[in-house]
Simulated scan of single mutants.
Amino acid sequence: MRLILLRHAESLGNVDERAYCRIPDHALPLTPRGEEQARAAGTEVLRLLEPGPVAVYVSPYLRTRQTLQRMALGDVVERTVLEPRLREQDWGNLQDEGEQLTLKQQRQAYGHFFFRLPLGESGADVDDRVAAFLSELWISAADPAHPTNVLIVSHGLTIRLLCRRLFGWSIELFESLSNLDTCEHRVLDRHGTRWQLDRPFHQWRDSPDDSVQR
């Protein structure tokens, strides 16, 4: 089985953080640069998928759906599932510009995994729904009709937590890793019961518990 994890292309929120104060997070569109990124990613993903079909699981947010559309994967897609459990961490409706920076500073000091946004989720909440998604995916993938290639189009923190679950990474290691860049991907291949990552995530500090990406 092969998993391709792709972060959405550049969105309005990536270039203008004040956009979160006037547009719902789920409705933020791609920028023109993001549309170009997605088209380029489509070519690369098609190369990775040869020769078989793919099952696509995509966050229902506008930017992830637009990314998948611009990728133009065509007939290689056997099924597409809009999966709410792959959505971005919930910050709680429209954000307040005055509170945005304060909350991010508090989260950085407290820890991205356990810090609960006042009207939204903690990283641990996202971890729980990612675990539920993976459990259901393994059940679906046991059906011989399910493609062995799986593309997941999601968000930065969500993708890191998917990998945390798959590889059993510690929370300390998770918090030491950076999100993928917009439209960056990772490929995971399964060999027996073990998963192999094609290349590590950028690590901005050594993990306090000395654990490493495996």
Rank of each mutant, 00 (worst) to 15 (best):
G92H: 11
T80S: 13
V130A: 13
E136L: 15
S176V: 01
R164T: 14
G120C: 10
Q66R: 14
L82W: 11
T102V: 14
D96Q: 12
R63F: 13
Q106L: 15
N179A: 05
E50D: 13
Y61Q: 13
T64Q: 07
D143W: 03
R160T: 03
R164Q: 15
H155W: 08
L119G: 05
L94S: 05
S140H: 12
S122Y: 07
D125F: 08
L94K: 07
E175T: 02
R165C: 00
L86I: 04
A142H: 04
A132K: 13
T67G: 12
V130C: 15
R63S: 14
V56A: 11
Y61F: 15
L82P: 09
G92Q: 12
L180F: 04
R47E: 11
T64L: 08
Q66E: 15
I139Q: 14
R47Q: 09
L180E: 01
L117A: 02
F113D: 03
T64D: 04
A145Y: 00
L177P: 01
Q106S: 05
R165W: 09
E99F: 03
H155I: 03
A72L: 14
L137V: 04
R107V: 01
A124P: 00
V126I: 05
L180V: 02
D96R: 14
G168T: 10
H155A: 04
N93H: 15
R107E: 13
E136I: 05
S176T: 01
I171M: 12
L173W: 01
T102I: 11
E83H: 10
L180C: 04
H155Y: 08
E83V: 02
S154E: 04
F174E: 12
T102P: 00
L103P: 04
P84N: 02
D90N: 12
E121M: 13
F133T: 00
L103E: 09
R160M: 09
R65G: 04
L73C: 15
R160Q: 06
W138T: 10
H155R: 05
Y110K: 06
V150I: 14
A142E: 07
E88I: 06
L73Y: 09
D90G: 09
R79N: 09
T158R: 07
S140F: 06
V81D: 02
R63I: 07
V77D: 00
G156F: 08
G74Y: 11
L94V: 10
I159A: 08
P118W: 08
L46D: 01
D96N: 14
Y57T: 00
L157H: 08
F114H: 14
E83P: 05
F167N: 03
D96F: 06
V58T: 15
Q105C: 00
C163L: 15
E99I: 02
R129V: 03
A72P: 08
A142G: 14
D128P: 00
Y61K: 12
Q100E: 01
L103N: 06
N179S: 06
T102L: 13
L119S: 11
F113T: 02
Q100A: 05
T67Y: 13
L49S: 07
G120Q: 09
D127F: 10
S122K: 07
D96H: 13
L48T: 00
G120S: 07
H146Q: 08
E121A: 06
T67S: 15
A131I: 01
